[in-house]
Amino acid sequence: MSTIKVPVVEKILSANDRMAAINRKRLNENHVFSINLMASPGAGKTSLILQLIQRLSPGYKIGVIEGDTAPVTIDADKITAQGMPAVQINTGGDCHLDAAMVSDGLDQLPLSQLDLVIIENVGNLICPAAWDLGTHINLLVASVPEGDDKPYKYPNIYRGLSVLVINKVDLLPYVNFDMAYFRRGVELLNPGLITFPVSCHTGEGFAAMIHWLKEQIKSQKSGE
């Protein structure tokens, strides 16, 4: 029997990419701006979402998809307590959300009534970077106590970002975090990246971020 070579040249995650494109189309049709929110565990993803809800409501309606590896509703409960619709997705131990899981989550949100969808990814700096969810932007929450070397150690996640939030800046006087070294690493991977230093604890730094976010929601509404 003879062996022949068949050219393939197909991305290994092409099925995910196709589903992500469908999600993006669906979000666009509903004029909803969407964020894939990534971070390591404990960086402040849920705290950031709560801050944004607090500062955008009641003028804006926000839907949240919460990804977790365990069947818990701790995060989703915090969102629904704020009067916003939330869907909890259990990845069954998987280390990241994928576009198919997000599609299921979108099914359960009243998309036509929303201005913004935030997808809280599984706390992890490695795997979520490889899976497009179909959102408009990828946002990473870095936090000061994690250390200033993270861009150097997790370059992939920093390369694919549109926005970086540096959380817990109120702890800068107490921890050994060299902001210049951190930002140099970010600049090497993602020159000119939009960055908002904030503290979800004290509330500092949010004015600029909220201004930017309202602009994004507005241009998505007008279909630009």
Binding site: V6, V8, V9, P191
Partner: peptide, 23 residues
């Protein structure tokens, strides 16, 4: 300089397969 751009190293695909045909 720190204004650098990745040009190779994030590939992740199947290039080809080798098969035996049905006779």
């Amino acid at each position: 300089g720190i204004h650098t751009r990745l040009i190779a190293g994030d590939e992740f695909y199947i290039d080809s397969i080798e098969i035996e045909k049905k006779e």
